[in-house]
Amino acid sequence: MQQAQEIQNKKEELSLSSFLDKLKFPLKVVEVIVLIFMIIIFIFPFIWMISTSLKTTQEAIQIPPSIIPSKIVIENYIQAWSSGPFLRYLGNSLFITLSVLVIQFIVMVPAAYAFSKIRFKGSNILFGIILIGLMVPSQITFLPIYMMMSKAELINTYVPLILPFMTSSFGIFLLRQNFMQISDEIIEAAKLDNSSDLKIMFKVMLPMAKPAVITFALFSFIYHWNNYFWP
């Protein structure tokens, strides 16, 4: 009786497995269709942007709109490029964005290392003050900063575009949380090899927190590249 029951259970398992195998192909087809649909949704704005840039003014604003231009107008790009010193604009954006990014890491890495691995009096209070900075809207700070830079006669220079962003509360918080997950034994081993705190920060801690570093670098680069208000 027990043997018959085991045979019946095996038959049910085989039938269920066979049923699931038959479902694999239809499910895969559905998955591919959904992915293609999502790709079209994300790519369509870029296709529309390129298509519109090649249209005449009348065709660009006509209703109903057309995806494929009836006449390709390359002169649009020539006119846009000659309307201003775009190489200078590009150079300004790269210089300011990369300068901010480098200075932020120079400031944030020691701060995150101190808050995560060095015990000192008042560290929790100082870190709490940094977290408060996450809750302060930038609209509150831009006017006092502008007045400070104006009094220092730094308006129309690169300094006001870089100096106010030399650190980031979010960046310090993100790196601190990642540094805290790194074992203290690794730091002790590095100190036994006569490594200084500076070397430990940039040669040991920073490479081990690479995902957080890359994440913050992307966020910071995109934010400052697209920051049209502050300039």
Rank of each mutant, 00 (worst) to 15 (best):
Q2R: 13
E6L: 07
E6Q: 12
E6F: 09
I7R: 11
Q8V: 09
N9F: 04
K10G: 04
E13H: 08
L14I: 10
S15K: 10
S15H: 02
L16N: 06
S17Y: 06
S18W: 05
S18K: 08
K24I: 15
P26S: 12
P26L: 09
V29I: 15
V29H: 07
E31Y: 15
V32R: 15
I33D: 01
V34R: 09
V34P: 02
I36E: 05
M38K: 03
I39F: 14
I40M: 14
I41A: 07
I41R: 03
F42W: 13
I43Y: 08
F44N: 04
P45Q: 03
I47V: 15
M49D: 02
S51H: 06
T52G: 11
L54F: 14
L54P: 11
L54I: 06
K55P: 04
E59T: 09
Q62P: 00
Q62Y: 01
P65H: 08
P65L: 05
S66A: 14
I68D: 01
S70D: 02
S70A: 03
K71W: 06
V73R: 14
E75Q: 11
E75G: 03
I78W: 09
A80V: 13
W81Q: 10
P85T: 09
Y89L: 11
G91Q: 06
S93D: 00
V100T: 07
I103N: 05
F105H: 07
I106Y: 03
V107Y: 12
V109W: 02
A111K: 01
A112L: 08
A114G: 11
F115Y: 14
S116G: 05
F120W: 13
K121A: 05
S123N: 13
F127N: 02
F127C: 06
I129L: 15
G133R: 05
M135D: 03
M135S: 13
P137H: 12
P137V: 09
Q139D: 05
I140Y: 13
I140F: 11
I140M: 14
F142R: 10
L143I: 14
P144A: 09
I145S: 11
Y146H: 09
Y146V: 00
M147H: 11
M147G: 00
S150L: 12
K151V: 05
I155V: 08
N156T: 12
Y158Q: 11
Y158T: 08
V159D: 00
L163F: 14
P164H: 04
M166I: 11
T167H: 04
F170P: 02
G171C: 06
F173H: 05
F173Y: 15
L175R: 04
R176W: 08
R176T: 07
Q177V: 09
N178E: 10
F179T: 07
M180L: 15
Q181C: 00
I182C: 02
E185H: 02
E185D: 13
K191F: 04
N194E: 15
S195A: 15
S195E: 09
D197Q: 02
K203D: 13
M205V: 01
M205I: 01
M205A: 02
P207W: 10
A209R: 07
A212Y: 05
V213Q: 03
I214C: 08
I214V: 15
I214T: 12
L218H: 04
I222R: 06
H224L: 03
W225C: 04
W225N: 07
Y228C: 03
W230E: 11
